[in-house]
């Protein structure tokens, strides 16, 4: 388990991370989602032991991660701008990581390279951006670490490659309990793979929930009301995150129990009502609108 307790980090006057507390359980895929400048990368770097938090500690299986070889041996960090040794090939990188990570599986690595059609002896400098990301993931998976921290790693991969990597993740999770932590803007991708999602905004945590629980807690209801007063009465008794009207059609984004929501709506005698599950993207937008990050302002 990775535990972050009251983590704060500032860069000069800029507060990048502000009192974040998160728990990442083993065996789950943790998705770290956030607006631009929310502090995702900073938090990931602190988890990887690259940055030292100004306040709080991050524990990896109970060991503070910063400057701890033991804790870092359980982590493999893939940054958004991954670095490769000068003039190295995938084989060279494999040799290097084998020196550093005792559990590095060279055979599995070479096997993966072959499966993903990557030439082990080709200079990495000649690889495309997507190929480099791909290589980073393979190295991370084959390092044999317990946790794999991926910062915007899936961006740049083609759909086929993405599926391939996902299936690898699933296999590794099943075989040895790998716990990936993925930071991304690509909510659609995270939706497929993540079990748990942490939503960051302006350095703080907006929410941290199981994805299923999140989806079971927010609903989109489309309905048509005859009586505006009854509509009002019903709506005010609910935790409405968003209220849109197009003619007679009212679309509500409501947080709460599904049964209760339907009961309230029905009590207003709508002409029509239908409950729809939200995608992760819709949940994200709704939650951030609540705190003032208004998507409409950004759409021209």
């Amino acid at each position: 388990m990775i535990e972050a307790a009251e983590i704060s980090k500032s860069f000069g006057d800029i507060k990048a991370v502000d009192h974040i507390s998160l728990t990442i359980r083993e065996g789950n895929v943790f998705g770290l989602v956030g607006t631009n400048g929310a502090g995702k990368s900073t938090f990931m770097r602190m988890m990887a032991g690259v940055l030292c938090p100004d306040r709080g500690t991050i524990l990896v299986d109970g060991i503070p991660v910063y400057e701890s070889e033991e804790a870092k041996r359980k982590l493999f960090y893939i940054s958004d701008d991954q670095f490769f040794l000068l003039n190295s090939t995938p084989k060279d990188m494999g040799c290097f990581y084998k020196t550093v990570y005792p559990e590095f599986d060279e055979n599995k690595y070479l096997d993966c390279l072959e499966k993903f059609s990557m030439d082990a002896k080709r200079k990495i400098a000649t690889f495309s951006k997507g190929m480099k990301k791909q290589l980073s993931i393979l190295l991370g998976i084959c390092a044999g670490t317990k946790y794999l921290l991926c910062d915007e790693t899936f961006d740049g991969l083609d759909p086929v490659m993405r599926q391939g990597i996902k299936s690898l993740f699933v296999r590794e999770m099943g075989d040895r309990g790998l716990t990936p932590v993925i930071a991304s803007h690509n909510l659609r991708e995270l939706e497929d793979i993540c079990d748990h999602v942490g939503l960051l905004h302006k350095g703080g945590v907006l929410l941290s929930k199981d994805l299923l629980e999140m989806k079971c807690n927010i609903f989109k209801v489309q309905c048509v009301f005859n009586d505006s007063i009854m509509e009002y009465e019903a709506v005010t008794k609910l935790d409405v995150l968003k209220h849109e009207r197009r003619g007679s059609l009212v679309t509500l984004t409501i947080r709460g129990d599904q049964e209760e929501i339907m009961h309230r709506i029905q009590s207003a005698n709508p002409v029509f009502s239908e409950i729809l599950p939200l995608s992760l993207e819709e949940i994200f937008i709704s939650e951030t609108e609540v705190v003032g990050y208004d998507i409409k302002k950004l759409i021209f």
């Binding site: 770097r45 990887a48 690259v50 870092k72 041996r73 982590l75 960090y77 701008d81 670095f83 550093v100």
Partner: peptide
């Protein structure tokens, strides 16, 4: 990021 994330 690369070097300081390594277990060294």
């Amino acid at each position: 990021d690369f070097y300081h994330s390594l277990p060294i």
